[in-house]
Computed example of a mutant assay.
Amino acid sequence: MASLGVGNLGEFLREQRRQARLSLRQLADAAGVSNPYLSQIERGLRKPSAEILQQIAKGLRISAETLYVQAGILDERAEAGADGERAATVGGVPDAVRADPHLTEQQKQALLQIYDSFRREHQQEHTHHRENPR
């Protein structure tokens, strides 16, 4: 079977799976896809739908948007916010926390909650300054 030009996605998935210390079978089970199908995706032989990518992202505990960009479904530039900050970069922190094999699930959740609270606080300050300029 010829490669469908999704090798970078497959390589990325394989690396994410290895960083998460998951076997192919474990990720397939977590994502609700068959082991052979996931193997074909990793080898660049199959191009998964956005729905399958979302399921795989959940299994890897990374953002689906990260996989959409890798698969060419979503343009990284489309991820930029109004202030020019790239969402892909912002998504990097939660993805890194979720992928860190040295943290427990409880530690990951605590860090993500703290990070989210800082982001919300910054957003509120940014909104306040726009609404009430000096």
Results as ranks from 00 to 15, higher is better:
2 A>E: 01
2 A>P: 06
2 A>S: 12
3 S>V: 13
4 L>E: 10
5 G>Q: 02
5 G>K: 08
5 G>T: 05
6 V>K: 00
8 N>A: 02
9 L>N: 05
10 G>N: 02
12 F>V: 14
12 F>L: 13
13 L>S: 14
14 R>E: 05
17 R>L: 05
18 R>K: 13
18 R>S: 15
18 R>C: 07
19 Q>F: 05
20 A>C: 00
21 R>W: 08
22 L>F: 08
24 L>R: 13
26 Q>V: 00
27 L>I: 06
27 L>Y: 14
29 D>Y: 12
30 A>Y: 09
30 A>T: 09
36 P>N: 13
37 Y>P: 09
38 L>V: 09
39 S>W: 07
39 S>D: 01
40 Q>C: 06
41 I>M: 05
41 I>P: 03
42 E>A: 15
42 E>C: 07
44 G>I: 03
44 G>H: 02
45 L>S: 10
46 R>D: 04
49 S>H: 04
50 A>N: 08
51 E>G: 06
54 Q>V: 01
57 A>M: 02
57 A>T: 13
59 G>F: 02
59 G>M: 05
60 L>N: 02
62 I>W: 08
62 I>D: 09
63 S>P: 07
64 A>V: 02
64 A>H: 04
65 E>N: 11
66 T>I: 06
66 T>N: 10
66 T>V: 06
67 L>N: 01
67 L>S: 11
70 Q>R: 08
71 A>H: 03
72 G>C: 00
73 I>D: 07
74 L>D: 06
74 L>Q: 14
75 D>C: 12
76 E>V: 11
77 R>D: 05
77 R>H: 05
79 E>F: 06
80 A>L: 04
81 G>M: 03
82 A>E: 15
85 E>G: 13
88 A>N: 06
90 V>Q: 04
93 V>C: 07
95 D>L: 00
97 V>W: 12
98 R>Y: 04
99 A>P: 00
100 D>G: 12
101 P>N: 14
102 H>G: 13
103 L>W: 11
105 E>G: 15
106 Q>K: 07
107 Q>F: 04
108 K>P: 03
108 K>D: 00
109 Q>L: 10
110 A>L: 06
110 A>P: 08
111 L>H: 09
112 L>Y: 01
113 Q>K: 11
113 Q>C: 01
113 Q>E: 04
118 F>Y: 13
121 E>T: 12
122 H>S: 00
122 H>E: 10
122 H>I: 00
125 E>H: 10
125 E>K: 15
127 T>G: 05
129 H>P: 04
131 E>T: 06
132 N>Q: 04
133 P>K: 11
133 P>E: 07
133 P>I: 04
134 R>I: 05
134 R>Q: 03
134 R>N: 02
